[in-house]
């Protein structure tokens, strides 16, 4: 992978730091009139998700990170790996549990997810913003409540638990916003 000088730094550039691929979020050039020149950089570590600030001397070079995003459809899990497929080339790729992380609960068969690859290996799996999942268990709820005054917990087919309005029942399919984990609406089957 090519090296990048601080002069090439900009938001979105992927670089290596402490052996981990990182995404530059912000870059500011700092140069007091008579002082040294620095680049003050805000960085997100792509594996740990940690956001940190780092200062580089201007002109320093850092190694670039071979990181790319790809859109792949979720197929199935064999218990250890999660298998995804490119719908155009039919090429398949397996992500481990670490890459999927918390998002396990939003994986729906055939949904297209964004997989971030580092040196060809998946490091993060991001589900679509909205997924549709069936409710496998929820309290029957109180009769007459239609406004959703706080709702009740519902367990979905993937194991995810979300709060739903009282009128929503077991066996129904609902739409959920995966970014917030919130119920959006019922889905007509």
């Amino acid at each position: 992978m090519a090296n990048f000088s601080t002069n090439e730094f900009k938001a979105g550039l992927k670089i290596m730091l402490d052996g981990e691929p990182c995404n530059i979020l912000e870059n500011e050039y700092v140069k007091p009139g008579k002082g040294q020149a620095f680049n003050r950089v805000k960085i997100r570590k792509l594996i740990s998700g940690k956001v940190l600030e780092k200062t580089f001397r201007s002109g320093e070079s850092v190694e670039g990170a071979d990181v790319m995003d790809t859109e792949l459809a979720y197929l199935y899990t064999d218990g250890e790996f999660y298998h995804f497929m490119n719908n155009e080339t039919f090429e398949q790729i397996a992500a481990d549990e670490k890459a999927v992380g918390e998002n396990i609960k939003w994986l729906v068969e055939n949904d297209v997810c964004t997989i971030t690859l580092w040196n060809g290996t998946p490091i993060t799996v991001s589900p679509p913003n909205f997924v549709e999942l069936e409710i496998t268990e929820t309290d029957p709820g109180l009769k007459g409540d239609t406004a959703g005054t706080g709702g009740k917990p519902a367990t979905l087919s993937t194991g995810a638990v979300v709060r739903v309005p009282l009128f929503v029942q077991t066996g129904e399919v609902i739409k959920v916003d995966t970014r917030t984990g919130e119920y959006v609406s019922r889905v007509q089957k």
């Binding site: 002082g35 040294q36 780092k54 001397r57 320093e60 850092v62």
Partner: peptide, 15 residues
Amino acid sequence: DLSDEYPIDHDGMLQ
């Protein structure tokens, strides 16, 4: 958090 290719001196830190 300074990348540590070169040491920073007294006035460099103050600046």
